[in-house]
Computed example of a mutant assay.
Amino acid sequence: MKSWESYNDAVVESMMKDSDQYFKGKYSLDLFKQNSSYSQLLQQAEIDALGMEVGGANVVQNIYGIDVAFHENGLNYGSKKEETISRVLKKMIRTAMAIHGYFNLNTGNIIFAAPKISAAIREPLQLYISELQELFHGKGLNFRFELLCNADFKEKIFNVVTTLSNSVSDTSELFMRSIQMYNLFVDDKQAMSLPKTATKTKKLPAVFKGSEVIKIGALVSSSFERLIANDVLTEQEIERLQRLDYAKRTFNITYPVLKKVDSTISMTEQRNVNGHPRFYADPYKINGTDYLLCNHWVEELSRSYFDAWLRRIDETN
């Protein structure tokens, strides 16, 4: 099997050596355990999740390398806390160098996430990560290193993923499948025998800790999934959501939020406005009627409007 083409080999080796020597000399941390082959260390790199933010002309604007660890009793890679700290730093350095070496990028977001880390490990680790970032920046590598654990893990990962679970149709991911199954029985009802629109999902507040990291489009679609499943939208509100003047005034968008499906017209034609798809492909069934949901939302223009509307809907139900 052909291996990936590598770039910046000299920089990668130098950066890994410098990082190793820095933490060994200052904190007696042995990151790479005297391994002389840094190229082999890089080839052994494992990244749990790799995400890319792609802009115009399919240019990668941002890249995320994420490692996740769950130890029920708290993060622990050995008998001493120094072993655990060293392992985390090693993972973060190797992830950054894999991005620099295989993607030829000088910037990126390197995240280590764990739901539970004790203060004895977390506090020095946060200090070392800040020093690691300074070390990289001093070499002209503008990587951002971040530790997400405990409350931050709950707010920025757990809350977000569980909130979006109802809008994800691909259930091949085991955690997502578990959450979706849990939601079926959260009210201790025999929901398996009920149609999808009658299944009650766990009610979450309109704005919760972590909701700000959800993109506006994903927030809108997941929120409507929840509102429809919980039978929250009144007939009057459904009628208003189909009006353009209401959409402009309430959400600051230029298309109706909902559009009733006409069975005599092709779905493509109903989704398109001036040749562009402005509604999601999959219809939402509300009280037995199919509606298309607007997909044209701009974060800076509509986020505060949608949050205010969603808060009002939740507070009145």
Score class of each variant (00 low, 15 high):
L105C: 12
N106G: 15
T107L: 11
G108Q: 08
G108W: 02
G108N: 09
I110E: 04
I111R: 05
I111T: 15
F112I: 03
A113P: 09
A113V: 13
A113Q: 12
A114V: 10
A114H: 11
A114C: 15
A114P: 10
A114T: 15
P115E: 13
K116R: 14
K116P: 04
K116N: 12
I117S: 09
S118P: 01
S118L: 11
A119P: 02
A120T: 12
R122I: 01
E123C: 00
E123L: 04
P124S: 09
P124L: 02
P124D: 04
L125N: 01
L125E: 07
L125K: 01
Q126R: 08
L127Q: 12
L127N: 09
Y128Q: 02
Y128I: 00
I129W: 02
S130M: 03
S130N: 06
S130P: 00
E131N: 07
E131I: 01
E131A: 03
E131S: 05
L132D: 02
Q133P: 00
Q133A: 09
Q133I: 05
Q133S: 05
E134I: 03
E134F: 04
E134Y: 04
L135E: 06
L135R: 05
L135G: 04
L135H: 13
F136S: 05
F136Q: 03
H137I: 05
H137M: 11
H137F: 09
G138F: 14
K139A: 15
K139C: 10
G140L: 09
G140F: 14
G140C: 13
L141W: 12
L141D: 02
L141C: 06
F143D: 11
F143M: 02
F143R: 03
R144C: 10
R144T: 14
R144N: 13
R144S: 12
F145G: 13
F145W: 03
F145R: 10
